[in-house]
């Protein structure tokens, strides 16, 4: 018996069956992606979790604390205030992004010659770094040399230059406008992709049945866009919850610390107060909250449509 099995085993070790070789090949194909994910996501995540259990100063020795940082987080009124502020900001910035993105997507979803130019124009702000665009808006809004005040003054709409960033409401308005300008192109592209995936036959059939443009929009396009909406919404909400650059650069959390977002507070703890361990605990806390929010959104917008 042994004599019968031995060569087979050896052969298997050498080359393996076809399905085994395919498995190995498959593994090798996904290996780069796996390594990348492990190095760039899993490992940092585990490290963050580990750090969050320590008093971890930027300089000097770390000491183990257990869950003390998480206890501190629950009691940290500024963290919860920041989270609430971030929620308000998200609620404020999401509707204009979506309404505008949907309208733009409808506009550019056509086969007209040169339509690509418009798609590109609407998309260009997405390409600019958020830090760069925030700095750009700081100067656009400047009271002495800003073009926005210049235009409003020339139109006679205002008598004195508006100091946008010293009043909470004005500052929020300015930031929301700048972020809508910056990110609307991204949501537009996602929605456009969704629109183009809707089979033309459905429209044609509806047209034959005498459906108007609005009826086609309402009864065909919107329901079929549901899953695209869900994806775009999750991405946009996560992006808004992670808001930092625009507040750090445009308002510095001011006036009077009224615009400190959750990530801003994490940044302050980690890189201003040098409490890396506590910053890590806050990050894990935010991660959990965002995870729950995303699950919730995907549930609500779950798409069971088949066509």
């Amino acid at each position: 018996m042994a004599a019968v099995f031995t060569p087979t085993k050896a052969a298997r070790r050498g080359m393996g069956t076809l399905s085994q070789r395919r498995m190995v090949a498959g593994f090798l194909f996904v290996l780069p992606a796996v390594l990348f994910t492990v190095a760039m996501f899993i490992f940092p995540l585990l490290m963050t979790g580990w750090m969050s259990l320590h008093n971890w100063p930027l300089l000097g020795q770390a000491t183990f604390l257990g869950i003390q940082n998480y206890v501190a987080m629950v009691q940290d009124s500024q963290f919860w205030a920041s989270l609430w502020f971030t929620t308000q900001y998200t609620l404020l910035v999401t509707p204009p992004i979506f309404i505008l993105a949907f309208l733009l997507a409808l506009l550019v979803n056509s086969a007209l010659r040169g339509i690509g130019i418009f798609r590109t124009i609407y998309f260009i702000p997405v390409v600019i770094g958020l830090g760069t665009s925030s700095l750009l808006w700081v100067w656009l809004l400047n009271d002495r040399v800003g073009i926005l005040n210049g235009i409003l003054l020339d139109l006679g709409w205002i008598q004195q230059p508006v100091i946008w960033l010293v009043d909470k409401n004005l500052a929020m308005t300015a930031i929301v406008v700048s972020i809508v300008w910056k990110t609307v192109g991204f949501s537009m592209i996602l929605l456009l992709a969704g629109m183009q995936a809707v089979p033309d036959e459905l429209y044609q059939a509806a047209e034959v049945d005498g459906a108007s443009y609005w009826q086609r929009l309402w009864y065909i396009l919107l329901p079929l866009l549901r899953s695209t909406f869900a994806l775009a919404l999750v991405l946009s909400v996560i992006g808004s919850y992670l808001a930092f650059d625009q507040f750090y650069i445009m308002t510095r959390g001011g006036p009077q610390n009224q615009t400190i977002t959750a990530v801003y507070w994490i940044f302050n703890n980690s890189f201003t107060y040098y409490k890396l361990g506590y910053g890590a605990a806050l990050s894990i806390g935010l991660l959990v909250i965002l995870g729950l929010l995303s699950v919730l959104q995907l549930r609500v917008l779950r798409d069971d449509t088949t066509y």
């Binding site: 959390g253 001011g254 610390n257 201003t272 107060y273 040098y274």
Partner: peptide, 17 residues
């Protein structure tokens, strides 16, 4: 840093208030 350089810290808040 926490006392004087923090844009959200007590030093700047004092001056602004």
């Amino acid at each position: 840093n926490q006392l004087f350089n923090d844009a959200n810290g007590p030093w700047l808040k004092m001056i602004q208030t």
